[in-house]
Amino acid sequence: MATEIDEVYDAEAAMNQLGHTSKVVTERHYINRRLVVPDYRAATDRLAPRPETNEGPDPAL
């Protein structure tokens, strides 16, 4: 419930709904944070390029 309230309103509204006295507790323990981050593969591939892949089986096997 806290996550849904946070998404529609904010963490303070979720805190009030749950009767918490600290928003930190609500955020840390009751609101699920989505782990969505930008795609950084272009930058990391420059440091360690991925090998070309073929559609067939791995010839090393």
Rank of each mutant, 00 (worst) to 15 (best):
I5N: 00
I5F: 00
I5P: 00
D6M: 09
E7M: 11
E7N: 06
E7Y: 03
V8G: 14
V8Q: 15
Y9P: 01
Y9M: 03
Y9E: 11
Y9A: 07
D10L: 14
D10S: 05
D10F: 12
D10P: 01
D10I: 10
A11E: 12
E12M: 06
E12V: 08
E12Q: 00
A13K: 02
A13C: 02
A14N: 04
A14H: 04
A14G: 04
A14Y: 01
A14I: 00
M15S: 03
N16F: 05
N16D: 06
N16Q: 05
Q17I: 06
Q17G: 00
L18N: 03
G19M: 02
G19K: 04
G19P: 03
G19S: 09
H20D: 11
H20N: 05
T21Y: 05
T21V: 03
T21H: 01
T21D: 12
S22L: 13
S22H: 14
K23N: 13
K23W: 15
K23L: 14
K23P: 13
V24H: 11
T26F: 06
T26Q: 09
T26L: 10
E27Y: 11
E27I: 04
E27L: 09
E27M: 15
R28W: 09
R28C: 03
R28T: 13
R28N: 12
R28E: 03
H29G: 08
H29N: 04
Y30K: 08
Y30G: 02
Y30P: 02
I31L: 07
N32A: 04
N32W: 11
R33D: 12
R33H: 07
R33C: 02
R34K: 15
L35F: 13
L35I: 11
V36I: 09
V36T: 05
V36C: 04
V37E: 05
P38H: 08
D39K: 13
D39W: 14
D39M: 13
D39T: 11
Y40C: 05
Y40F: 15
Y40D: 10
Y40W: 09
R41H: 14
T44F: 03
T44E: 09
T44A: 02
D45F: 04
R46P: 01
R46L: 07
R46Y: 06
L47P: 00
L47E: 12
L47N: 05
A48C: 12
A48I: 12
P49S: 08
R50A: 03
R50G: 01
R50H: 02
R50I: 07
P51E: 07
P51N: 08
P51C: 14
P51D: 05
E52C: 09
E52K: 14
T53H: 08
T53F: 08
N54E: 01
E55K: 09
E55D: 10
G56L: 13
P57E: 05
D58A: 14
D58P: 04
D58L: 02
D58C: 15
P59Y: 13
P59N: 04
A60L: 05
A60T: 14
A60G: 07
L61M: 15
